[in-house]
C-alpha cells in the first residue's frame, strides 16, 4: 500500500487476463451468459458473474476479466456468432486508487464529474487522465480501478502522485 496523499493509496494490480469482446448484441448476450450474468451490463456499467467480470465500455464492446481458466467457456459460447475476442492482458497495467481523496485526485487530471450521483459505484468508462487514455471503474465509494496502456503507466502514476502531493491543501467540497 503506497500512500500518495493523506488517507489515499495507489497500488499497481498484479497481471490479470483481459479480453476485449466486440460484436453485435447476440455475441454480447452469449458472452454474458457464459460469464453467468443475467444480462449484458448497460453502457458504462460493470457486472460480475461466476465466470468473471464484464465492463461495458461501448455499445458493441465488453472488456472481460475472466475468472481463472474460464476463457474456454467464452470461446465455446461465441463459436457460432460473428465476433472478435482479443487477448489484451499485456496491453494494460491496472492500478487501484483508494481513499477519501481518491475522487478529488482523479478530478485533478480528468474533467469527469466524480460526484456519486454522476459517477456511481459500478460505473466504468474510458476517458483521459491528463494526456493519457485510461479506463476508470468505480468499484467502491472511495475505490477506483484504473486501467492504462502499459507504456503510459509511469506517466499516469507520476501524475496521480503529483496531484496527491497538493491535494491535502484544498478544501474541495462540491
Amino acid at each position: 500500500m503506497v500512500e500518495i496523499a493523506e488517507g489515499c493509496t495507489l497500488d499497481s494490480l498484479p497481471p490479470m487476463i483481459r479480453l476485449v469482446l466486440q460484436g453485435r448484441a447476440a455475441a454480447l448476450d452469449a458472452a454474458a451468459g457464459a460469464l453467468g450474468l443475467d444480462a449484458v451490463p448497460p453502457l458504462l456499467r460493470a457486472a460480475s458473474g461466476a465466470g468473471g467480470q464484464a465492463l461495458r465500455l461501448g455499445p458493441f464492446e465488453l472488456m472481460i476479466l475472466p475468472a481463472l481458466g474460464s476463457r474456454a467457456g467464452l470461446d465455446a459460447a461465441l463459436a457460432a456468432l460473428p465476433h472478435s475476442l482479443v487477448d489484451v492482458s499485456d496491453r494494460h497495467v491496472g492500478f487501484v486508487l483508494e481513499g477519501a481523496r481518491a475522487a478529488d485526485i482523479l478530478a485533478g487530471l480528468c474533467p469527469l464529474d466524480f460526484a456519486p450521483s454522476s459517477f456511481p459505484v459500478g460505473m466504468v468508462t474510458r476517458t483521459l487522465l491528463d494526456k493519457a487514455g485510461a479506463a476508470i471503474w468505480r468499484t467502491g465509494a472511495q475505490t477506483f480501478h484504473i486501467e492504462v496502456w502499459r507504456s503510459f503507466a509511469p506517466y499516469v502514476e507520476a501524475q496521480l502522485r503529483e496531484v496527491g502531493r497538493g491535494i491535502s491543501f484544498s478544501l474541495l467540497s462540491v
Binding site: 476485449v20 466486440q22 472478435s84 499485456d90 496491453r91
Partner: peptide, 11 residues
Amino acid sequence: DVWLTSVTEQW
C-alpha cells in the same frame, strides 16, 4: 461483421 482491436502494446 469485422472488429478492430489495438494490440500495439499487447505484442
